[in-house]
Design a protein around this nucleic acid. Structure first.
Length: 86
DNA sequence: GTTGAGCGTT
């Protein structure tokens, strides 16, 4: 199981801190990342959230997927492995 | 300041 989550359909008003606060309600948030479009400087409206364990990631999906945030519904799923080992 | 389907960087 993965502990990384892919969150799409984000309200543009949300940032990494807001996501971190949302996901820490169901588990420990390791990291939150919101890539920007460097060609247009627009927000892409999606983010990646990494939980401490896959168990908490699963719980985050159960609690935050399809939940209303800022008038929008979040789409929380498992993310692909694209992280580069640092 | 910008927009609405989607899987990113250090």
């Amino acid at each position: 199981m993965l502990n990384k989550l892919f969150v799409r359909n984000l309200p543009f008003a949300l940032n990494e801190t807001d996501l971190s606060n949302l996901f820490s309600a169901v588990g420990v948030v390791r990291s939150v990342k919101i890539p920007l479009d460097h060609e247009t400087n627009r927000k892409r409206g999606f983010a990646f959230v990494e939980m401490q364990t896959a168990q908490e990631a699963a719980r985050a999906i159960e609690h935050l997927h399809n939940s209303s945030v800022e008038g929008r519904q979040l789409y929380v799923e498992y993310a692909k492995d694209r992280s580069i080992a640092a």
